[in-house]
């Protein structure tokens, strides 16, 4: 099982913190991702490593409908965002682009910034230090979309 480093965020991390609107006009996600979390953690994009996970409090991704928010996190190699709760548009967007967005009520209190974690997506379990936590299952439709890697593949392979 791969070990992931934890990035811990508080409640109500909004989409303007994840990617401020002035960068949404950059022509590619690749250019945009350098500005992830710029208002609160300007160095994030430089230091985050592929396979890292985000653990957050309530209402992660509140605010605008910008799908670039989960997209840049995925492009930076974030393996999953685990939160006590998600704002609904971010939650749908994340699954639709194939970024696992996982609800786990206990993770926030169990996690410290920089801790190592083991995430087993198929079992829906998260191990932080010696705590093994279980995550809330996605609804069947969302799980199917995520299993296909996102809505585009889901539509191409399962629906159309």
């Amino acid at each position: 099982m791969d070990r992931s480093q934890i990035w811990k965020f508080n409640n109500n991390v909004d989409t303007d913190q994840i990617i401020p609107s002035q960068y949404l006009l950059l022509p590619t996600i690749d250019e945009m991702k350098a500005f992830a979390f710029e208002p609160i953690l300007p160095d994030f994009a430089k230091v985050v490593k592929s396979g890292d996970i985000i653990i957050a409090g309530e209402n992660f991704g509140c605010g605008s409908s910008r799908e670039q928010a989960p997209r840049i996190l995925k492009e930076l190699g974030i393996r999953a965002v685990i939160a006590m709760s998600f704002s609904r548009i971010f939650f749908r967007n994340a699954i639709n682009i194939g970024l696992p967005a996982i609800i786990c009520k206990e993770a926030y209190n169990a996690a410290h910034h920089g801790d190592q974690a083991e995430l087993d997506l198929s079992k829906g379990s998260l191990k932080i230090e010696n705590n093994i936590l279980s995550c809330t299952k996605l609804s069947p439709i969302m799980q199917r979309i995520l299993d296909h890697g996102g809505l585009v593949s889901f539509l191409n392979e399962e629906v159309l």
């Binding site: 409908s65 910008r66 799908e67 548009i89 749908r92 682009i97 809505l151 585009v152």
Partner: peptide, 23 residues
């Protein structure tokens, strides 16, 4: 609508909500 403030149309009795661009 592709904007989160699409909830505005509830003012006239519509069910309206924001979605991302893929959706």
């Amino acid at each position: 609508g592709t904007d989160s403030h699409t909830t505005t149309y509830g003012s006239i009795g519509a069910f309206s909500s924001g979605v991302g661009y893929t959706e």
